[in-house]
């Protein structure tokens, strides 16, 4: 058993263990932390597959931003103490049966006879001068430049949608009303009062 296999099985063990701990943990904050561990393991598996840029992206974007967002929401809503798992046992057997059937079918289809090393040999490792980011960028900015811009627009839409959903209308916020400003007449603003000037002998 080579060192690559040892690393792979080590990462797989922690990936599966932390994923199981994530779905069975009763505390939502602990579940987020287990999910962080499984994302780290997934990123390490991706580095084993020579996808370094995506592995770093997964850690920076997912663990650094998305998981912290989850933790923020859990702490803000204060639901980590609530017991939301009353119907735990009812659906567990059905879920386990479905999952075991899926795993059995996948193992039959994806076994060593179809995707083993003799059918699909492992490619040679790239040298030290190989840059994964350069290869990805060459593809991303030539062939896939239009989807890349669409992804940017999608993120912009997501920002606007998230802000619009959560934004509260404030009561005492000062803002312009353009139509009132345009339609104003002089008599609304200026009031002419006739005041009789007091004479000197009244003083």
């Amino acid at each position: 058993m080579g060192s690559e296999q040892i690393i792979f099985y080590f990462l797989s063990f922690w990936l599966i263990a932390s994923s199981l701990a994530m779905i069975f943990s009763r505390n939502a904050a602990k579940a987020v932390l287990f999910l962080v561990l499984s994302f780290f393991s997934v990123a390490s598996v991706w580095i084993l597959l020579e996808a370094e840029f995506l592995a770093i992206t997964l850690i920076l974007v997912y663990v650094g931003a998305v998981m912290v967002l989850f933790l923020f929401v859990i702490k803000m809503l204060n639901i980590d103490k609530s017991t939301l798992r009353a119907k735990f046992a009812g659906y567990l057997p059905l879920g386990l049966i479905v999952a075991l059937i899926i795993i059995a079918e996948m193992t039959l289809v994806l076994g060593n006879a179809q995707f083993g090393l003799d059918v699909m040999p492992a490619p040679a490792r790239h040298g030290a001068d190989y840059s994964n980011i350069t290869e990805l960028a060459l593809q991303l900015y030539t062939t896939y430049v239009y989807p890349f811009e669409l992804a940017a627009v999608l993120l912009l839409i997501a920002i606007i949608a998230a802000i619009t959903l959560v934004h509260k209308k404030e009561i005492n916020r000062k803002q312009q009303s353009i139509s009132e400003q345009v339609n104003v007449r002089a008599k609304d603003r200026v009031r002419i009062v006739s005041i009789t000037s007091s004479s000197k002998e009244n003083k």
Partner: peptide
């Protein structure tokens, strides 16, 4: 070496 089927499974 780790085969493709290991990753897929």
């Amino acid at each position: 070496m780790v085969s493709l089927s290991d990753y897929l499974i």
